[in-house]
Design a protein around this nucleic acid. Structure first.
Length: 351
DNA sequence: GTCCAGGAAC
DNA sequence: GTTCCTGGAC
């Protein structure tokens, strides 16, 4: 690390001491961070914003304060808490990892990158982040915020996705040997609060004089935008099958989209073959509404059908289908797509 | 309404 | 390279 690079990390650390965000997984003062909390937070923060994570994190820690308690939970409980947060394989991997940490590591999160990488759900970013933040061991952490900050600092004129190696090298150069956890979080907080994607607040930036993009008056154009790949759209059908105050719901397959989550019977949109849903074709149905929902790789238009179920139809329910009390749907694990559909139906039924 | 940001697994 | 979700900015 050259003298100039040390000056950058010193400025960032000084700024962090005054401006660190107060986040529930952070401890201040002399207390050492709790590796368990850092792990849970980093998994939740994958592809998910801080604001969305905070309430989920608080509930999670309240319910399972330690690895030991988490590994005794059922996956269904973890999915229920995760409901609405998205990317549900994270919950599955977290639950799986807790058992491994319990049996193989005596409930202590491993503290080397190579051991962390063996845990399901932990990739190169998360392993480095845990090393730095939980254990204050030197690691090069490159998350979404840091990619942007570093691209601007060093005026890297390439789209982020095509430039991982160069960004990693520059991040490595400015990463100090001491206070690594604070340094990493200073970059994250700077990216979140000051060096924002649009309208960066350069006047608040502690390293404005070191920023080559700013010096070139290009801070609003770095990192370069890459052309967006076009999203296709899909059409599906969801069925609100009602029997008095009950509605028919089921648990989705344990793989693929929205795996193991609860749902209204829905067909024609997820490229899955689920023979349990074949009975739907025979039902007499009426289209009552539709909604739109965005996934990463497609836009979904979901038509909503109402089926008034007659007792004498005597439907034999497939596995993992149940009649749920319409007034007590909270206990199920619905993804946001289903919450949106249910809300729409319930609102439409009000006069 | 549409776009965009945010990592891991396969 | 493709599949996994959501909330907030625009």
């Amino acid at each position: 690390m050259s003298k100039n690079q040390k000056i950058i990390s010193d400025k960032l650390l000084k700024w962090y001491d005054q401006n660190a965000r107060l986040l529930p997984w952070r401890l201040f003062g002399r207390a050492k961070p709790d590796p368990y909390k850092i792990w849970i937070s980093e998994i939740m923060l994958q592809q998910t914003t801080v604001q969305a994570v905070i309430p989920y994190f608080k509930l999670f820690i309240q319910k399972w304060p330690t690895v030991d308690q988490l590994c005794k939970s059922d996956l269904s409980e973890v999915l229920h808490l995760w409901s609405g947060l998205g990317y549900y394989s994270r919950a599955r991997n977290l639950h799986l990892s807790s058992s491994i940490i319990n049996s193989k590591y005596n409930n202590f999160l491993p503290s080397t990158e190579s051991e962390l990488l063996k845990l399901p759900g932990i990739g190169s970013y998360t392993a480095a982040a845990i090393m730095a933040i939980a254990f204050n061991k030197r690691a090069v952490v490159v998350d979404g915020n840091i990619k942007r900050v570093v691209s601007r600092l060093f005026f890297l004129e390439k789209p982020i996705k095509e430039n991982y190696r160069e960004i990693w090298d520059y991040t490595n150069c400015i990463t100090p040997n001491i206070r690594v956890g604070d340094f990493v979080q200073s970059l994250m907080d700077l990216g979140s609060e000051v060096c924002t994607p649009s309208k960066p607040r350069c006047y608040q930036c502690p390293v404005i004089n070191d920023c080559k993009a700013k010096n070139n008056k290009k801070e609003n154009f770095i990192p370069l935008k890459q052309r967006k790949l076009e999203k296709n759209s899909r059409n599906g059908s969801s069925f609100f099958i009602r029997k008095g105050q009950k509605v028919l719901i089921y648990k989705r397959l344990d793989h693929g989209l929205l795996a193991s989550l609860d749902a209204l019977p829905s067909i024609g949109w997820d490229n899955q073959v689920d023979h349990r849903l074949e009975f739907i074709k025979k039902l007499e149905k009426k289209k009552i509404s539709s909604i739109k929902h965005e996934f990463t790789h497609f836009t979904l238009k979901m038509d909503i059908y109402l089926v008034e179920y007659l007792e004498n139809e005597n439907l034999k329910l497939p596995k993992d289908f149940i009649w749920a009390d319409i007034n007590n749907l909270k206990k199920f694990s619905f993804p946001t797509l289903m919450q949106k559909i249910l809300k729409k139906i319930i609102n439409d039924q009000k006069p």
